[in-house]
Nucleic acid binder design. Sequence first.
DNA 1: TCCACTTATGCTACAAGCTTACTTATGTCG
DNA 2: CGACATAAGTAAGCTTGTAGCATAAGTGGA
Lengths: 365, 365
Amino acid sequence: MTELRPGDASLLRKVNTQVTLRALRREGVTTLTRLGRVTGLSRQTVEAVLDELGERGYVRELPPDEGVMGRPARRFAFRADAGHVVGVEVGGDAVVAALADLDGEVIAWERAAVSGDAAAHERLEAAGRTALKCVDGAGLARRRIWAVAAGTPGIVDRTGRVSLSLTLPGWTGVDLAGLAGRWFGCTALAANDANLAALAEHWRGSARHVSDLVYVLLGHRAGAGILIGGRLHQGRRGAAGEIGTLRQVGWERAVRELVEGGSAAEVFAAALAGDRAAVRRVDRYAEQLAVGASALALAVDPDLLVLGGGHARAGDVLLDPLRRHLAELCVNAPEVAASTFGDEGVAMGAVRLALDHVEREMLGL
Amino acid sequence: MTELRPGDASLLRKVNTQVTLRALRREGVTTLTRLGRVTGLSRQTVEAVLDELGERGYVRELPPDEGVMGRPARRFAFRADAGHVVGVEVGGDAVVAALADLDGEVIAWERAAVSGDAAAHERLEAAGRTALKCVDGAGLARRRIWAVAAGTPGIVDRTGRVSLSLTLPGWTGVDLAGLAGRWFGCTALAANDANLAALAEHWRGSARHVSDLVYVLLGHRAGAGILIGGRLHQGRRGAAGEIGTLRQVGWERAVRELVEGGSAAEVFAAALAGDRAAVRRVDRYAEQLAVGASALALAVDPDLLVLGGGHARAGDVLLDPLRRHLAELCVNAPEVAASTFGDEGVAMGAVRLALDHVEREMLGL
DNA sequence: TCCACTTATGCTACAAGCTTACTTATGTCG
DNA sequence: CGACATAAGTAAGCTTGTAGCATAAGTGGA
């Protein structure tokens, strides 16, 4: 269970700092008195906390509002530009980097194509170059980056090493987090791409008001990420959700079969237009996906199943047959929704992961 | 995420009460000074906390030790007999009740046979009777029971209602927690049997030092329970782990096929003796189980897979082929262990669930 | 029997953090 | 320019915590 430490008075301050900071960020620009009301803390306490946060650079005082009754209130705001994070997707055929401030507002995107059979060092170099370009292009000093996170296909262990990659050449064994740390000389994290995309959906996507979530990433390959209690569940070796590798489930084969008759986009378009053969092909794909998806759904019993990745852009052409097949297989199938992010989900999730780390640090563990 | 409340000084006291209580229970009979050292709190604080706990009846002061150097130290002990809980398994063909004190030491067991096709009200009556007999037989006043928990096959929702039972007649829709609450007029909880057995293994069984765990219950029917981060994961509707119902997995059929040639115990015994046909039969059973087990393992990537229920008593005769088939199916299969509890696992888990509730209450939220 | 030694207790002083109540400052509005 | 509204500032007091030191209550040996 959770380790529990004895608390002295400073613990109180930590808790109340956390409470105040959250309220301030939720409310936006706010007055002292209002913060007191909202948090349930006394004005004095809020003031003391804000002073401290101001000294540390996280909070700024604004000039008082004019034209209102009574003595002008002191106004405060969270300094979202106090620090920044970078989230990177290191994918099979592209690298996507996002630069974001502490509010998670993305300031700049940067993309680069990478060959599917590029060697590991080429892929890494492309990732680093793209991340740096993203920051430099935004005119931000590199030392302003507090954390970096990277997402990539394959199994990534807790230290951020790729412990197994079946799709990218030479990728197994790469210490992705370790190498990403050198880009800006800051802490770096790495995780499986589907896991990060799940995080993004929970943060700002289709799964905002949900606590247990299964995310299925469909594209050149299929993978899954799991959130339980709003937190990433990675498993002992980071392999949680890798059910697609089970032979009986056969996601790999399903993807291959789908694109036998042309590109996936073409098949979906034809099905949408009413082409019988394409409809059957999509239905067959959905049926095969449903086997793995229902296994995940039955194992986890999530509040929501989100479909993301390239194929999810097909929308209901794919989702409706999938829902049908799921209902056949599951006792009570979960709701199914499409991802709200396009091909930016993984990078967004990486931003969220980096922010999680920064926010923990910000308050001293 | 977790709701975060502002803290005043009383929060500190709560935290330190928790810390002190845990240390006291871990150490057994202990002196004031020692508790201070162990917890990292000052002796004064520990004393104040212990005074309070003494008044509430949770802690007792013992006469000082004799024959040691120096001034005799005041000695304290947790009063495990301050309250009691009852854990009940309401199974297909039997009811098992356990009475335990606050340390989780079982004071009395009580069992009763129930017909597999008994009506719901008969089964409930048998359960109530058994629970009451267990307490009465131990000479304990019924009002000393602070909480009851019950485990049963089928899907049990968060309120403790059986929302789906495929094996017990009339069982679907029974408000098990609500009815169990009347036995002793105290709070009552209910959950799926495999979930509770998983809890028991993590508490005092094979999974003590593990945080993510999949428990597979094998007997007349097959079910699974999942622990993540040491906590029960029940899912949206309490159906997490119900992968056995997936047709492709076919646990129900596997169980049927195993016992075609005689009772399960006979088949396992024959296999152990070297009977070729029995060995093949067990291997086939293991192979079929492995499909579902590997799906769970790939979905959750647990630290450990525990096998329990009647068939797990077969031991390595069943476990070894299962390990073999799992290794074939999983990228990196988890370790597999047999349950340490016989047919008492579910009731033990129910005891743990009830204790969890009591311990939360003991400290005020 | 008595005295030195050991160890824990009891007491006092004080610091951190939070709250409440009251006074004062600084605007707007008629 | 005075009344009113609103929030800031100030001071006292409570709870909970820690630290240091004198004191109590045993053991053990001369």
